[in-house]
Design a protein around this nucleic acid. Structure first.
Length: 1023
RNA sequence: GGGCGUAUAGCUCAGGGGUAGAGCACUGUAUUGACAUUGCAGGGGUCCCAAGUUCAAAUCUUGGUACGCCCA
């Protein structure tokens, strides 16, 4: 095995192999029924999606935490699955159809959905395969999909429960309508962009005989959307605006439509803006909708002039001229729309007030409109301008559901990391609007509501817009039918379910025959054709994936009651003690942690909080960790349109999954975005190679796997030292992980591995192996260096040689590195773990060889750190560094082996020279140190701690250079000493500063002034 | 308009009331012994500006400036 590791680490050779090994052996979730649970749910990626760099970050962080907790012995569960992603997936399939000159409406609803399922089966495995390449240790055995049968059950139950509790209702109001996708979308799915646009000014003539105080017979209004004037229903002026006070209550007669509409007083009109008068189109503008309501116009009476494609249709008062009907709202693909025609007609008729401005040359010019920047709403998926449209939709009463989550974050029950996100969270949650959850799509969870006609005085009528229109909400058709029967039996009607509704209500209305129903005394109910917002289902992810609602759960009371009856949280959980079966849901809910990008804080995280509280009576997780975006190297946001996306799979191909993962961890500091940097990924690939070669070195010296979790007994200073260093590293790593400081954690293990273990420890132990053949050194019991207790603890054979001890300690330390690094670099660590196991494996009864690293045990050094050993090795390191530095400055070949004299050795020096002479000689490249005066002659002088070594350099050294070098060092010491002296001379400092600060200053001063003295003496010796 | 964040070495970023750190880049240098995907050594910073608090401010407070993000 020794020579089986190739010189260079090639990630591709090992990654697939180990992943398959882990997955096949079920190691992502080993049976640990009695262990403490640790649970994370993965933000379900879109089923037809593929892994982008943001996924790589998000999943790397989660995998680090999950692997860490698994190593620490917990029953770690990482729930994985995919999201059906209603709009996105339907769009993908429709786009494919388009390429074949086909379209959705060529199919029945059922057939289309079948086609989407086909596509799901075909492409749904892409992202899950890619997550595997990244090394993510998810529980694939329970992979979930938001449209799985049980998950759909959870969605329907939630809808029905919310409806019964009055927290879901149907309402007619303006929605954000996407005319491309022809569906309503929620506020969150709207992205506002500032565009250059125009502000047109019009004259609206006052009704006969009415004039303003200044005599004008018109009111000037201005708008960025002239086309909507076809559905104008009022003109608003501010109540305190004296210019218009006399005409409030009077009317204007609209050009083009001839509609006579009132002038109303409303605070929405801004006297400073334009003329101070504003046209009101309640059916096509959110502000105007509110103004209209205040003016007493019911939502049902508001005029609508656009169809679902945003083409002009006739208003209910029939006043839109023929030539406008069918035009798109505005110019599209070069074809002028209603906007252009409205402007043209108004201009012709003299109602357009031109905008006068000056060119750069100072010439006056007349424009149709004032140029202006307009905040324009776009649909985040469809990419077209959103049209506020008056429709009936289902709404979730988010305000009520938000109350408890707000409280939970305020009280700290839910911790948001970094905390700075709390303010953003509160700001949104406290101003939350009703959540529109119905979507006019086919792919998704169909809303479990059945509508029926209204029967009054034995007249059957259907009015979908009537608020008292009968609706039966139930999880199944049978239940809904039961409810409908109970309802209609009172009027003596039979009920059947219409299966003809595949499109919109309008489609149904075409088939609807009121007279026939009335004659036959039978009514048809039909299921709402709409589906639910994707985020409605993913909001249930933390518990529906664990079996809710089939498994026991504590269904909470409706929120209003719950607020003052809060007993749900700390009782009833069945104990996890032995013998009792505990369901997955009971054990793993609430989840411990959620890791998500801040971009889905509102879309997903907040809604999980609401639904977790509603369905489970608890917060869905205890901590929420929000990470930033991965940006392109220049700091720009990555986007397909910019063409600057970095493919994580490409990075894995080039540098290995371990390197990419380590990059993500090392760069992840709280509250900051990550800029992509391939050089850095490369650097971590190099780090993997370094570890690889360190292991090869160990193997070539017979260093194999450790067989104890506790640190081996050690007598040699270097071995004692590295044990202490491991201990410190574990502590630092645990602290970083506890705080979710991924960068600190990654840097800790990086520095330890490279700068301590490779750079110093392996160098320090080389002499042990070099001397093996010459004089196998038998270690005598230690000589009062504080390690007696260690020796007593593991009283193995006392005749252990230095080589044997070092093999044990080095093998142990390497094992600890592998385990500590495993969460970050799972592949290489598993490979090396087995390579090491092969060297000291089952044939020796090594228990460590019985399990792979993925289920190994987290380091537990349980050793007393030897202070003398630490001091000794630190002293050796200082000496070595100073000798190297001096040589470098004096231009002496680094390899030159020099003689060193120590005229006056400190206790530390003499004991260390005695114990670790071989290491000193090798690292500092000195011949054995002679205690005593050096012979006269040119020499350089090097310090280590309080010791000054004299290194004769007859013939090699230029005294002037050595003098210059020492003077430079002296100046530095004197500067430090002087500064400290000044501070210590300040009475205020000595009296008022913290005692520790004063102590430290004194100690530093003593150190620097002693150093200065030593250097002065050294200079004096040079003459 | 409201809110949030960031500003530290050439670059990307940690840190943080006691006088400055990492990686990369740069300079010099080494090479029969784990590793050139390497070793060793080194240069490089008015910690954005100003005021305040303090014995002491890069750090805390306030106010600027610049950039970025979110909401309206």
């Amino acid at each position: 095995m020794t020579d089986q590791l190739p010189t260079t680490f090639n990630p591709a050779d090992i990654e697939a192999r180990w992943y398959q090994y882990w997955e096949e052996k079920g190691l992502f979730r080993p049976e640990r029924p009695d262990a403490e649970a640790f649970t994370i749910v993965n933000p379900p990626p879109n089923v037809t999606g593929s892994l982008h760099i943001g996924h790589a970050l998000d999943n790397t962080l989660q995998d680090i935490v999950v692997r860490y907790e698994r190593l620490r012995g917990k029953d770690a569960l990482w729930v994985v699955g995919t999201d059906h992603a209603g709009i996105a997936t339907q769009m993908v399939v429709e786009r494919q159809m388009e390429e074949r000159q086909d379209k959705r409406t060529n199919y029945s609803r059922e057939d289309f959905i079948d086609k989407v399922w086909e596509w799901k089966h075909e492409s749904g495995g892409t992202i899950t395969r890619q997550l595997r390449r990244l090394g993510c240790s998810m529980d694939w055995s329970r992979e979930q999909f938001t449209m799985d049968e049980h998950f759909t059950g959870a969605v329907l139950k939630t809808f029905v429960d919310l409806y019964n509790d009055g927290l879901i209702y149907r309402d007619k109001r303006l929605v954000n309508w996407d005319p491309k996708l022809k569906t309503a979308i929620s506020d969150l799915e709207v992205e506002t962009q500032d565009l250059k646009g125009s502000f047109w000014h019009f004259k609206y003539p006052l009704e006969d005989g009415v004039t303003l105080d200044d005599g004008r017979d018109y009111i000037e209004v201005a708008t960025t959307r002239p086309e909507t004037m076809l559905a104008d229903m009022a003109v608003a002026v501010h109540p305190t605006d004296e210019r218009y006070a006399s005409v409030v209550g009077k009317h204007v007669v609209l050009p083009i439509t001839g509609r006579k509409v009132p002038i109303v007083a409303d605070e929405h009109a801004d006297p400073e803006l334009g003329s101070g008068a504003v046209k009101i189109t309640p059916g096509h503008d959110f502000n105007d909708f509110e103004v209209g309501k205040r003016a007493g116009i019911a939502a049902g009476d508001m005029l609508n002039m656009l169809d679902g494609d945003a083409n002009v249709c006739q208003t209910s008062d029939g006043r839109v001229p023929e030539e406008f009907l069918g035009l798109h709202r505005f110019k599209r693909d070069g074809t002028p729309g209603a906007r252009e025609l409205v402007i043209e007609r108004l201009k012709e008729q003299g109602f357009l007030i031109p905008y006068i401005t000056k060119t750069k040359k100072g010439e006056e010019v007349e424009l149709d409109a004032e140029p202006r920047t307009i905040a324009t709403p776009f649909g985040d998926r469809g990419g077209v301008v959103i049209e506020p449209w008056l429709t009936d939709q289902w709404y979730v009463d988010a305000e009520k559901l938000a109350a408890k989550p707000i409280e939970q974050v305020k009280s700290g029950e839910i911790e948001i990391i970094p905390q700075s996100w709390e303010k953003t969270f509160f700001n949104w949650m406290e101003n939350i609007q009703p959540w529109c959850v119905s979507r006019q799509l086919w792919w998704g969870h169909r809303i479990p509501a059945w509508f029926g006609p209204k029967i009054q005085d034995d007249v059957v009528s259907f009015d979908q817009t009537a608020s008292d229109s009968p609706v039966f909400v139930a999880a199944t058709e049978a239940e809904a039918l039961d409810k409908a029967r109970a309802y209609y039996s009172k009027a003596g009607y039979e009920v059947s379910v219409s299966d003809g509704v595949e499109g919109t209500f309008e489609d149904f209305l075409d088939d609807f025959d009121e007279d026939q129903e009335q004659a036959l005394k039978t009514v048809q109910v039909w299921r709402d054709p709409d589906v639910l917002d994707t985020w409605f289902s993913s909001a249930l992810w933390p518990f529906a994936t664990l079996g809710w609602p089939d498994e026991t759960s504590v269904r909470a009371e409706p929120v209003e009651v719950r607020a003052d009856n809060d007993v749900s949280s700390d009782d009833t959980g069945p104990s996890t003690s032995s013998g009792q079966t505990v369901s997955l849901l009971e054990k793993h809910f609430p989840n411990n942690l959620l890791i998500s990008g801040f971009d889905i804080l509102f879309f997903w995280d907040a809604r999980m909080m609401m639904m977790g509280q509603y369905n489970m009576g608890k917060a869905p997780w205890l901590k929420l960790y929000l990470h930033g975006l991965v940006r392109a190297a220049d700091g720009a946001k990555m986007s397909k349109s910019k063409g600057n996306v970095v493919d994580p799979l490409g990075l894995i191909d080039e540098y290995g999954a371990d390197a990419l993962r380590f990059f993500m961890a090392a760069m992840e500091s709280q509250g900051r975005d990550i800029k992509m940097d391939n050089e850095r990924v490369k650097g971590y690939r190099n780090f993997a190679t370094k570890l690889w070669n360190a292991t090869r070195f160990c193997q070539s010296n017979g260093i194999g796997a450790s067989d104890t979790l506790a640190a081996p007994d050690a007598k040699l200073a270097a071995n004692q030292w590295i044990i202490g260093e491991v201990q410190q590293t574990v502590e630092a790593l645990d602290a970083a992980m506890a705080d979710l400081r991924f960068d600190a954690a990654a840097n800790t293990i990086y520095q330890f591995t490279w700068s301590r273990f490779c750079d110093w420890y392996l160098e320090l132990i080389k002499p042990v192996f070099a001397s093996e053949s010459v004089r196998p050194e038998v270690l005598s019991p230690s000589k009062g260096e504080g390690s007696d207790s260690d020796a007593a603890r593991t009283s193995t054979s006392s005749a252990r040689t230095a080589v044997e001890e070092t093999r044990e300690v080095a093998g142990w330390a390497l094992d600890q590195i592998l385990v500590m690094l495993h969460p970050f670099m799972p592949f290489i660590t598993e490979e090396l773990w087995h390579a090491q196991g092969a060297l000291n494996g089952p044939e020796n009864g090594n228990p460590r060889s019985e399990y792979p690293i993925i289920t190994a045990k987290w380091p537990d050094p349980r050793a007393n750190v030897s202070k003398p050993a630490t001091q000794a090795i630190d002293w050796v390191i200082e000496l070595t560094s100073n000798v190297r530095s001096a040589k470098n400055e004096l231009g002496i070949a680094p390899g030159a082996k020099l003689a060193a004299f120590l005229p006056s050795a400190s206790e530390l020096a003499s004991s260390t020279i005695e114990r670790s002479s071989a290491a000193i000689e090798r690292l500092a490249r000195l011949t054995p140190v002679a205690l005593g005066e050096a012979p006269d002659g040119p020499a350089m002088q090097v310090t280590a701690g309080s010791d000054v070594f004299v290194i004769p350099l007859e013939g090699i050294i230029d005294i002037a250079e050595e003098k210059a070098r020492l003077e430079k060092a002296l100046a530095a010491s004197q500067k430090e000493a002087k500064s400290l002296e000044g501070r210590l001379g300040n009475a205020n400092f000595v009296e008022r500063a913290k005692p520790e600060a004063v102590e430290k200053a004194k100690a530093d001063f003593a150190h620097h002034s002693a150093e200065a003295e030593r250097l002065t003496a050294a200079l004096a010796r040079l003459g």
